[in-house]
Design a protein around this nucleic acid. Sequence first.
RNA 1: GCGGACGUGGCGGAACUGGUAGACGCAGCGGACUUAAAAUCCGCUUCUCGGUGAGAGUGGGGGUUCGAAUCCCUCCGUCCGCACCA
Length: 864
Amino acid sequence: MAVAERYAVKESEAHWQQVWAERDCFRATEDPGRPKYYVLEMFPYPSGRIHMGHLRNYTMGDLVARFRRARGFNVLHPMGWDAFGLPAENAAIQRRVHPAKWTRENIAAMRAQLQPMGLSLDWSREIATCEPAYYRHEQKMFLDFLKAGLAYRTEAWVNWDPVEHTVLANEQVIDGKGWRSGAPVERRKLAQWSFRITRYAEDLLRAIAELERWPDKVRTMQTNWIGRSEGAHLRWDIQGRDEALEVFTTRPDTLYGASFCAISPNHPLASELARDNPDLAAFIADCARLGTSEEAIETAEKKGFDTGLKAVHPFDESWTVPIYVANFVLMEYGTGAIFGCPAHDQRDFDFAKKYRLPIIAVVAPRDADVEAFSNDLVAGDEAFVGDGVAVHSDFLNGLSVTEAKRAAIARVESLGKGAGTVQYRLRDWGVSRQRYWGCPIPVIHCDACGIVPVPEDQLPVTLPEDVTFDAPGNPLDHHPTWKHVDCPTCGRAAVRETDTFDTFVESSWYFARFCAPQSDTVAFDRAAVDYWLPVDQYIGGVEHAVLHLLYSRFFTRALRECGYLTVAEPFAGLFTQGMVTHETYQAADGSWLEPAEVDKTGDGAARRLSDGSPVTIGRVEKMSKSRRNTVDPETILETYGADAARLFIVSDNPPDGDMEWSDAGLEGAWRYVNRIWRLVATPPVEMPPMGTPVPVADLDTATLGLYRRAHKTIAGVTEDLERFRFNTAVARIRELTNALGELKPEAPGAGAVYRFCVETAVRLLNPMVPHLSESCWTALGGTTILAETDWPEADPAHLVDDTVTLAVQVNGKLRGQVDLPKDCPKDQAEAAALALENVRAHTDGKTLRKVVVVPNRIVNVVVG
RNA sequence: GCGGACGUGGCGGAACUGGUAGACGCAGCGGACUUAAAAUCCGCUUCUCGGUGAGAGUGGGGGUUCGAAUCCCUCCGUCCGCACCA
């Protein structure tokens, strides 16, 4: 069969996609006899169109999946849709289309857009989280969490948008205002459903150490987010009252430096006192208005209000300090109350200066003269927060900070005034949202029975289809009938919970559902989840470093506690890919231009295509609608095909860094795709049939070198792909194909070596450019298809050369090189180096001090 | 402020446990082929210098070493995360 000289991309890509589909190459089945490998990319939100970030993410995942499959693993590589969320409701409001219809149409459109990428996905496992077949299981999980005490309802402070009548996530509050309504957000206390993630705080933290195949960056972020600190709860009696003030501190060693206590404006004691004290009430209202935005915190002055109450020091009943209400004390952390030690905490220091409170130094720097140490040392502008020795502290004197902490806690405990404790920054996960397009929370509120879980045989609680979005607030709340039900317990009229789950709940377990998505009756087939989990390689954006990735780790533990599965950690390996960026363009009037509107081909400055007016080329930034610097993947795929795009994506730069999308870079990949094809279609030397052994013994030095180079390439590329070094893997393959230009066609065995090199390149390129490599493989005479063919093996005998080139230095400067037999004796290398003319020129007339020989590497001649 | 990552040609980036800095690609320059263009192929491409060679060079300065992009100290800069967390 004649091989076309030009590579027909469209036909090739369509053909192979059809072949893979017909042969069902990528369907995964559990097979305990083979090592499994679960590759997963973070599933997309069905916004309607795929973007470059998707293209990059799925290209990497597909590369890994195809590579592992060829390496003999039983690979699971599924795809689905994170289908609940606010954009669907916005579309309903703006375009009067039902969220379900909008979402399902978007899924269909995006599935069609993904198809030309040639991804090796098992589509039989596709899931969409907005379907009752999916979320019914989530409702069952919630009921199990309720029973296990992992879900509960409580009053919580939330961001409330008074115009939209809904809770907003922190991310949706911009400059203290609702992102859509522009109305100032109120802090409100509302009854909210929460998941008890804090139950696992210690375990989530401890296990981070074992996530060896996670980026350090993400591990650090999760560690900080959980925010463990050791300290003590202390009880300060309040003079004239029965109750005590409970405070949390990490510095019990500084108790003898206490000069005040402070409570949060939201502290119950503050509220109580405010009832009879209009000034305090005004102060608290003032604090509430300040908000919690970054700038507000940055610029806010430390302010306090003296309640007039006195707290009694735990170690000394005759010692009292004033109790303030202070704007910098958070109700959400610790007990909402602190004791202030101004000498050793900067914030307390500033506060004490402002309100003229005593500043008592109780920790002396190690190099200070303890006897002479006085308040002078902290009388400047800064508190002393370093390590040191306790002073002016009675029984603690002379102890280090660590020892003093321990001793102070022991004393506090023996006095019954508190206890050592561990405090976390992590809070429980509030999952209630006052929205329609989410999973209904399956409980019923009954006046007589309280909160009644929906009986399991009545699941799923499905969303009503007939909803309207013309009134602000939650459509479920406005629905005429949906929420009105009889109480399952007493039978009297009751109402459904109208809150729905945060969409992060769905994404907290989808990876497990992929293991066995077929069942209606159970969430997971136990054997299937136990076989596939954990995910061996998870790939996605770093923006989920804390939220999704922490929620999923919690959820997996909770599911384990409820008997759903066996593992605790969902993702054994994590890779966070960088963003896709692009140059930005601005017209003379400052408006942003799309790349397609700009002509950069002419010499000199860029011009606008429409009228030739000058264009300013701006910074390279993340692709975004506001900068208009986006490139549509669909156009790219239509013009160049999937393989060129995939090749560009993996070869341009390391996958964890940001990549700059450029036409020139894509063109370069496109040229290489065609070049590979030409290597196959128009070889410069006649190739023997596939399978003909390479006559190694007959090869001359240069041809043997080329043959060995192919083996080295196999070894190098394999190693690179294992370690996510896609860019250097491609570079190695390019080096091999570049070296083919040096082949002498008349040399013995040239045809066989050429064939071997080309076959090797084609097989190694398969994970990156699957269609092209299949076409090449067939054209080369291959009768298998590469998607089902094993990865090439490097012959260890050909990975090392008989001779090596050593660099020769004189006093550390390169002066030449010598070719020597591998592992030759040091004196031979030394002699060869000293014999070099250029070495002589630099050593003549000087004293030879020594010669350093690093075998097979370098000879350094030291003269003086 | 706290925590983390990083700084290499015009650009993206290579460089194993310290051992020939700049692989591979993009852009650029020159040549071949062509009536011409595109495509392709070949060559050059860190800077400086009278150039078959030498000097400088991996953000700046210092140090360890026969030898440093790599290790140590210090300064500068960029990016990211958290941010009144007691």
